[in-house]
Design a protein around this nucleic acid. Structure first.
Lengths: 247, 247
DNA sequence: CGCAGCGTTGATTCGGTTCAAATAAAGTGG
DNA sequence: CCACTTTATTTGAACCGAATCAACGCTGCG
């Protein structure tokens, strides 16, 4: 068995929850155990489909997944990213049917958490509190995305999204300073920010032209974080990561 | 004391929660009691401001309130409506600071629910389940709004919003068939749907021209619900009101 | 009464979409 | 491993939905 401390610090789920609420050693053990039955899922695979009855919940350990909806005309709106440490809502069993789909965007490592396991986790007060806080942050993020799409220009939206991802991925140890893996296509980014992929491409070009970012080989490098944040009018409060997040 | 049955059926909070989860008589009594210290609040008054530490939660008994954020340039995005029966999130005390503001849009009757009362309510399993389900529906609604702003045209957005409000207000007995009070200004609607008030006005005109709605004296009448829903591509599932909602 | 905000309309501008095409990259099957 | 197919990236040109700027009447209210 590997050293449990290093195992713990590499586990994005534990890392995320621990940031929200202090956990006991026992809580940690239980949470680590959840990640044991991980499975690989290729990119562009639905984990959950709109209309399905909820059955457990998916936790992402590696890669990017998303919540999305499709219109009859084929238009897609991505409504959330699930990055390592993120999971579906643990109370989802209260509903009769899923109102949206969840799909991988890149190759992913995921765990399906069974309803019994969910009950066990929610029986632990600290874990339950951390999961509820996590739900509140998901909702706050959704609100920020609505502001993004409703009241920011295309370039600002993209800049804001990159600032958010940089922080979220940092929080789970998935960044190398200002650089991180961004395994998304331009159509994916376009469906996230509510534009066409053509216009997304031009907005991306504009950020590059301004010397704010670099994006190649599915890796994003933020070249000037302060200016990128200023452009996006990015305020990190909604992620509720604490003060260290501002840095 | 008035007949408690008629009192109960007129209470939008009880009515909403009861639709989600069956409640015991005792649950009902406790929930009704919450609405006792109602207060009148004039239109355009902040109930909660971004940055505030959370202190209890507001429940709307009458009128329209909203969650919103402002940009530095003054642009406002409304991210949710709170209609009778709606309240802030009951777990909000887990956060250190509010990440958005809540304001009345019309004159309202509201109750501030104190943290102790929240604890009492959450101690009742059925009530707690209903409140959590309500949170899930709020989140689903937010996703639908994001789809609305990201992937629908101006006229479709407006149509969709009206379809949603019609159902939500019906669910708490605030409609008269196809007619209901809509005490919002055009700038309010514009800040909801991510457009300017000028363009909102023209979109409204278009819906009127097509004979789909009538809006005057702060009352909306839906003249042709099937066609309005078709135009908006409205599917009620995300509100999780059950099958009767389709009707 | 006078002012501020709302509702409406017109003219103009602009951000973003659409259509199109060419290249590059990433699967897929033999 | 290559040929084939599909999908992503990039660029150009034309077009359109929505924003902007402006003006005017109206309503509500201090």
């Amino acid at each position: 068995m590997t050293d449990s401390t290093s195992e713990a610090s590499g586990n994005p789920f534990l890392r995320k929850l621990e940031r929200f609420v202090p956990l006991s050693d026992e809580d940690r053990v239980v949470l680590l155990k959840v990640s044991e039955n991980a499975q690989a899922v290729p990119a562009r695979t639905d984990l959950v489909q709109e209309g399905d009855p909820p059955a457990g919940v998916f936790l992402i350990l590696e890669g990017f997944a998303c919540r999305y909806k499709l219109r009859a005309n084929g238009a897609r709106q991505i409504m959330a990213y699930l990055v390592p440490g993120d999971a579906g809502d643990f109370d989802v069993a209260l509903l009769d049917a899923m109102d949206h789909s969840i799909s991988t965007l890149s190759d992913c490592t995921v765990v399906r958490i069974a309803p019994e396991t969910i009950r066990d986790l929610l029986a632990r007060p600290a874990v339950a509190a951390a999961l509820r806080k996590s739900t509140l942050v998901d909702e706050a993020t959704l609100r920020e995305w609505l502001l993004n799409v409703g009241r920011r220009t295309a370039v600002e939206r993209l800049a804001h999204l990159f600032c958010e991802l940089h922080l979220r991925l940092s929080a789970v140890g998935r960044t190398d300073e200002y650089r991180f893996k961004l395994p998304l296509t331009q159509p994916d980014l376009a469906d996230t920010t509510g534009m066409t992929s053509v216009h997304l491409n031009r907005s991306l070009m504009e950020l590059r032209r301004q010397g704010l970012i670099e994006l190649q080989q599915r890796h994003l490098t933020i070249l000037d974080l302060p200016r990128l944040r200023e452009l996006a009018e990015f305020k990190a409060g909604y992620l509720h990561l604490g003060d260290q997040a501002a840095a």
